[in-house]
Design a protein around this nucleic acid. Sequence first.
DNA 1: TTGCTCCTCACGTCACGTGAGGTGGC
DNA 2: TTGCTCCTCACGTCACGTGAGGTGGC
Lengths: 334, 334
Amino acid sequence: VLIGEVAQRSGVSTRMLRHYDALGLVRPTGRTVGNYREYSEEDIRRIFHVESLRSLGLSLRQIGQALEDPAFAPSTLVSDLIRRTEDRLKREQELLDRLRTVDASAPLAWEDVLRIVELLHGLTSPSAARRQQTVLADAPVPTDLLAEAILTESDPHVAGALRWALARAGDDGVAAVASAVYAENAAIRRRAVQALAELPGDEATAVLTDALTDSDPTVRRHAALAVGTRGNPASAPTLVGMIVEGTNDVEAAEVLGTLSLDPDCADRIMALLTHELAAPTADPAARIRLTQALAEMPAPLAHPALQHLTDDEDPTVALIATSLAGVLEERING
Amino acid sequence: VLIGEVAQRSGVSTRMLRHYDALGLVRPTGRTVGNYREYSEEDIRRIFHVESLRSLGLSLRQIGQALEDPAFAPSTLVSDLIRRTEDRLKREQELLDRLRTVDASAPLAWEDVLRIVELLHGLTSPSAARRQQTVLADAPVPTDLLAEAILTESDPHVAGALRWALARAGDDGVAAVASAVYAENAAIRRRAVQALAELPGDEATAVLTDALTDSDPTVRRHAALAVGTRGNPASAPTLVGMIVEGTNDVEAAEVLGTLSLDPDCADRIMALLTHELAAPTADPAARIRLTQALAEMPAPLAHPALQHLTDDEDPTVALIATSLAGVLEERING
DNA sequence: TTGCTCCTCACGTCACGTGAGGTGGC
DNA sequence: TTGCTCCTCACGTCACGTGAGGTGGC
């Protein structure tokens, strides 16, 4: 079989078949009288083997070794190829993300492209200081970049700066992070809720209210503090739970106090608090925190409850209740 | 600033800085008396611009144009880069899949690698005939490759051959496709259920029973036929539904007949069938199919029901009921 | 004088495509 | 004779690394 037909049948160009010959990869069995390369069926099978190995990303040199050297085992090379391919895949994915971000900014000139790329480099720098500096620089960071950065930032200071910048950016900040409240990754949901907590407006409130039923406790707690501050009593059970568990309990108690400016709501919160205080499973430290939380409630409701706790069987609770009841009395009388 | 310091500050090798100079990309502003390249701060800024654009995948030639030619707009090039990157990403992903499959087969020699790659090419060939031929060839296809192919095969004939090969492969076939019953993609779940339907054993039955509550109706129906055949009465409502809707109704009726060999089950199925027949919303064609299905039920139960339908207000139903009741009488007496 | 940095020129990498210039078989 | 296939040799691609051989400033 002459080289042209082999090329047709195998899909390998005549140029490459000659190259394989020169490298010694596939030497045609014979030559015609006119010095034409003459391939046997066995040669052609070998060409297909070469192409098979090429489809796995082996270099021609590696293919040569694989087909010649019996001591050259596949295992090491294959796992090496896997590692390298994973690497390239990751880099290509990062490149694509970068390109999409640039494209989304609809640059009119290459200067615009350079601006975005530099911002991007700053925001994804391994140095937290550099990231911080990029956020706080004079050039405002586009909202979508801020949102993206917020959802992946692990350094608390930089995260704070990013949230501040997002809040300053205005209305579209909410839209940019809102969808992340429904992300699969809990860490992303937490960051989204923290960012939304600092953004005003009904839209943010609505999404935060959704987050009250999140599967992740930290998300629920961030949402409860934010939503409670905005006057939604649906946050009350989570806030009481925070006091019981001792996570951000002081802040939670304050928010409950704010919510209690509404009389109906105050009644319901008092019921929750006294229920937890009376629970047989309540641990002493939790009962102390609950007692302290009562002081944030409206005096007419809190005072009788504290009065009742002054002869609690836990002496610490009794002591705190006595003290707080005194403070409330002064407040009422003074 | 001399070239060495520029290289340090920018991270670009002196070799490349000279190359940029030769290409005219970044020409250092001056030369020292000793003919050393002398870069200005402006030159260095330009180097960073070049690196920014390189991080987007532009070639040096494209960077030259971008920085020189004001008419060379980013938009076209950027979307072109995106398209090419998506392409490469896809190819890299396919390569990685191939490599992982090869690695999973733990090849000891390159011949083993070649075998797997050729099977893989055969199974993913765009030609259905080629795929079919690969499945039916003498060399048995490893179970995991069969499973993968089954879940993506769209040609019904090839799919049938794949399921047949999987059933012949023995026990680990179930394990290989079972998890796909919980895949997100409904088409994959359908294929998994169809494959499991042809596999014997309690494990397959358990997974198929799970699929009875799938959100996709086709998945539920395939599961109901399979699970019903294996004697699980939980499939009955779906099977009756298939008769009402006229999808695979004959087969569904047969399976209901088999289930009715158990007297308790027969009573429940009769209740479902007569309930549907009496439903005020039942369409005429559905009532005909339900009437026909009664003939598959045990004669002592089916006969009175058919007798009652002989004076149905739908004359077609009445006619069929009369005829089937006659057949049953013959069967009872004969 | 010794190290160091810089210079230019040029080859090698890797898998090819694309000629140029020439020849053999129908 | 004409068109086709084949031959060898060799340059170009693209972003580099790595010399060789030489020079200027501390």
